[in-house]
Amino acid sequence: MSFILLHFNYVAVAILMMAGLFVVVSSSNLIKRMIGLAIFQTSTGLLYISLGKVSSGTAAITVDAASPEKQALANHLDPAYVAQYGVAGVVYSNPLPHVLILTAIVVGVATLAVGLAIAVRVREAFGSVEADEIEVLSRLESAQAGSQA
């Protein structure tokens, strides 16, 4: 039971990624596909953050072990656990995945903005944001270019 609970995160993240990816590859609407892509990218972040969680840890902002905040944090912790996994008497969660995902989120919004800007231009040029219709129009154009010459 506890194995399932403690691995639930990964399974949930896997399903979220699949949901995002499914929208990207199955939908024909360009805007909807960008939403799917954003979900796919966000879920990747959740995977990293799950990896960096430390039981009874706190956010990686250094606290003085003698401060009242720290006392409150440490009240119900096993001293041996703190001694083994803490730094200067405080247990922190792993900061590295946080840094990486901060970067990934920013990359995600950059992609989203550029993708949507292109989608807007597609609408202006083709009068549609449905990939199926655009493909038909493109095909037509290629065929016309052929018959003109």
Binding site: G115, I118, F126, E141
Partner: peptide, 8 residues
């Protein structure tokens, strides 16, 4: 204009 869907 086909550059746009290609880029997307």
């Amino acid at each position: 204009r086909r550059a746009l869907p290609a880029a997307f």
